[in-house]
Design a protein around this nucleic acid. Structure first.
Length: 279
DNA sequence: AGTGTATCCTGCAGGC
DNA sequence: TGCCTGCAGGATACAC
């Protein structure tokens, strides 16, 4: 669920509120959200101060005062909710609560519990971050660099976009939307993209991510902002989840196909499988 | 280096 | 109403 725009929305809401505050206490209700034991996790975090809030790919990253990093991956259904004071009603599927000074609560809730909260040293986080591909908005990721990364892969471009080690932060929704906007079939081999197609894809990816961030992300069902609100981008989705609806460009019914175990959505007219005008 | 499949889980929609 | 099946924004491990 939460892809880059959803996590970015959460980060932007937390960033003005968290830095400088101390974690007074930690309560873990769902042990399988952690990699460490509950006592280790609690002991390591109690008394720590939050220095900054950031994002890397789909990960929410809290930097702590003693140069450690709390890395939160929300999986499919994770929610990060900030309440000043205590939540006025029980948080459904609550997994971990962080009690903040002076009077706040940061909650992690996750109905499917695919999410993970991991506490890492500076070195540990650096190594983890290095595994991930570049950020889509990294200014050094220009057309040439993007094309170069595509050129070394025979994977279908949809799989390439979902692979966090190739580019960070893209999930199934925005992969579908970016490919539609760039008129590229999701089956196309990454390295078969022309320089023009690669440039179009980079542009469309950045555009759709930017627009989604401006809308606070996409809520299909579970995603909530840190304030508990819904993302407003869902009505702007052009192909994702729209099987059978007319293509907004050419009116051809949108198709759904499954590969690599996941649904892909596309317009079969706008996104041809073969490269365009191949003699 | 790829793909397909399974796995971790729960909740919901749709069919009967 | 209730039961069953399929499906879901993610990540990883496995065999092939």
């Amino acid at each position: 669920m939460p892809e880059l725009p959803e996590v970015e929305t959460i980060v932007r809401q937390l960033a003005p509120a968290l830095p400088g505050r101390r974690i007074r206490g930690v309560e873990v209700l769902q042990a399988d959200l952690l990699q460490s034991s509950i006592p280790d996790f609690v002991r390591a975090l109690e008394g720590a101060r939050i220095r900054s809030v950031g994002r890397r790919g789909k990960n929410l990253v809290l930097m702590l005062s003693d140069v450690r990093f709390l890395v939160v991956n929300l999986g499919m259904t994770g929610r990060v909710l900030l309440h000043e004071g205590t939540p006025d009603r029980p948080v459904p599927h609550l997994g971990v609560s962080f009690f903040l000074e002076p009077h706040g609560t940061l909650s992690y809730a996750d109905s499917r519990r695919f999410g993970r909260l991991v506490l890492l040293s500076a070195e540990g986080w650096e190594a983890e971050s290095k595994r991930l591909g570049p950020e889509p908005f990294d200014p050094t990721l220009d057309r040439e660099a993007f094309l170069g990364r595509l050129a070394v892969s025979r994977a279908p471009i949809r799989s390439w976009l979902l692979d966090q080690t190739r580019i960070a932060g893209v999930g199934n929704i925005y992969a579908a939307e970016a490919l539609f906007r760039a008129k590229i079939h999701p089956h196309r081999q990454a390295r078969s993209l022309t320089p023009q197609e690669a440039a179009a894809l980079l542009g469309s990816l950045r555009a759709v991510l930017r627009e989604a961030i401006e809308s606070g992300g996409t809520t299909l069902r579970d995603y909530r902002t840190a304030e508990g609100g819904r993302g407003r981008f869902a009505p702007s989705l052009r192909v994702y989840g729209r099987e059978g609806e007319p293509c907004p460009r050419c009116k051809t019914p949108i198709e759904r196909l499954v590969f690599a175990g996941r649904a892909a959505f596309l317009c079969p007219m706008c996104q041809r499988e073969e490269a365009p005008f191949d003699s």
